[in-house]
Amino acid sequence: MNHPTDLLPEGLEDRLPASAARITAAMRACLETLDAHGYDRVRPPLLEFEHSLASRMLGAGTQRCFRMTDPASLETLALRSDITPQVGRIAATSMKHAPRPLRLAYAGDVALIRASQLDPARERLQLGAELIGADTVAAASEIVTLAVAALRAAGLTGISVDFTLPDLVDTLAGREGSHTPEQLAAIRRELDTKDAGGLKAAGGEAYLPLLYAAGPIDEALPRLRAFDTGAALASRTAGLEAIAEAVGEDARVTLDPTERHGFEYQSWFGFTLYADGPGRDGAPAGGAQTGALGRGGTYRIGGSAEAASGFTIYVDALSDLAPQPEPTRTLYLPRGHDPQAAARLREEGWRTIAQLSDSEEPQALGCTHVLEEGETRAL
């Protein structure tokens, strides 16, 4: 029976060996993919001065961050809830003079004061890549295809990428100039909820076709172009088409042009990542779409306004779908074994467990082989 003091706070959990192994394997596969594409890893600290972190969170603020007083400086510190602003700070300060475009990768834990009902976890392992110093279709294409490659490397199949245009209403309103800021806020809200009746009541009847310009990219994009009679979105639709072509057959591409959830600071382009599986037992998940595995898009770095494109992958969610890593051969080392032979076998990829007492049962400890006279024998 657990003692009450052994309980963990809401939204926090232990990851036991099998789960931790999936997380580690998925993280390694993703990071190796980012490294292979020229993205250098950085490791920002867990804590920063609150005012510094808030200045780069582009409107998101630090309301979701745990805060505390630093006894050294007496300043308020914030425990990061997002690593992306920290990478932006590194690019704008320590790596200000590094050649552009700058390619950076990261992986680390973040914590939230509150989480949503749909995703109650308050501690998450966040991994991602940022391409800094370029605001082009080519840069966005690289980021999307890299995100897909990372998911594939982690063993996921049935990958989907859902495109959106975060600044869609602002772009169209700038051309029309016929709505007040309050009306535009109401229109955005009704588009977010996909409420046709509410959109009409808010004075956004002209935006109704946007609700139907969604679905597979080859069907939705022509509908979006048909709506864009004034060509206000011409460059954006051309960009979406080019990015979809870059993805090719590696993932299913869809479009939801009015989706803004999770795109608080993206500019003209955003995307969400999904996958079908495989599931924990290694079998396909039957085609059922999971929750979002990651998001990305184009944005401006807070504080410096430098153009960037990037993505974040939620490794915990990804690992729940990733296949269990292949079991490592585990070798039992009896007392008095040859240490040089054991070292050689570890170099060859064996995992070893050394005997500590006569009461041990090698198979109960997960061993598959035993070392005898310098050779391995299956148990």
Rank of each mutant, 00 (worst) to 15 (best):
D135T: 03
D135H: 14
D135G: 14
D135M: 06
D135P: 01
D135V: 01
T136A: 06
T136N: 03
T136P: 00
T136Q: 04
T136H: 04
T136S: 15
V137C: 03
A139F: 11
A140H: 09
S141C: 07
E142A: 05
E142Y: 01
I143F: 05
I143N: 01
I143E: 11
I143S: 08
I143M: 11
L146G: 03
A147E: 00
A147M: 03
A147S: 08
V148T: 07
V148M: 11
A149H: 03
A149W: 01
A150K: 03
A150L: 00
A150I: 00
A150H: 01
L151T: 05
L151W: 00
L151G: 03
L151C: 12
R152C: 01
R152S: 11
A153F: 01
A153N: 01
A153M: 02
A154S: 13
A154H: 07
A154F: 03
G155Y: 00
L156S: 03
L156A: 05
L156G: 04
T157W: 01
T157S: 08
T157C: 01
G158Y: 06
I159R: 02
I159L: 07
I159K: 01
S160R: 13
S160G: 08
S160L: 06
S160Q: 11
S160N: 09
S160D: 13
V161A: 10
V161Q: 08
D162I: 08
F163E: 09
F163I: 07
F163Q: 12
F163Y: 04
F163S: 10
F163N: 09
L165H: 14
L165E: 09
L165D: 05
L165Y: 14
P166G: 07
P166S: 12
D167N: 14
L168H: 10
V169S: 02
V169N: 02
V169H: 02
V169P: 08
D170G: 08
T171F: 12
T171I: 13
T171G: 04
T171Y: 14
T171K: 02
L172T: 09
A173E: 12
G174H: 10
G174C: 08
R175I: 12
R175Q: 12
R175V: 15
E176K: 12
E176S: 14
G177E: 05
G177Q: 12
G177D: 06
S178V: 13
S178L: 13
S178R: 15
S178Y: 03
S178I: 10
H179K: 08
H179Q: 12
H179L: 12
T180P: 10
P181H: 08
P181N: 14
E182K: 15
E182G: 15
E182C: 11
Q183C: 09
Q183S: 13
Q183H: 13
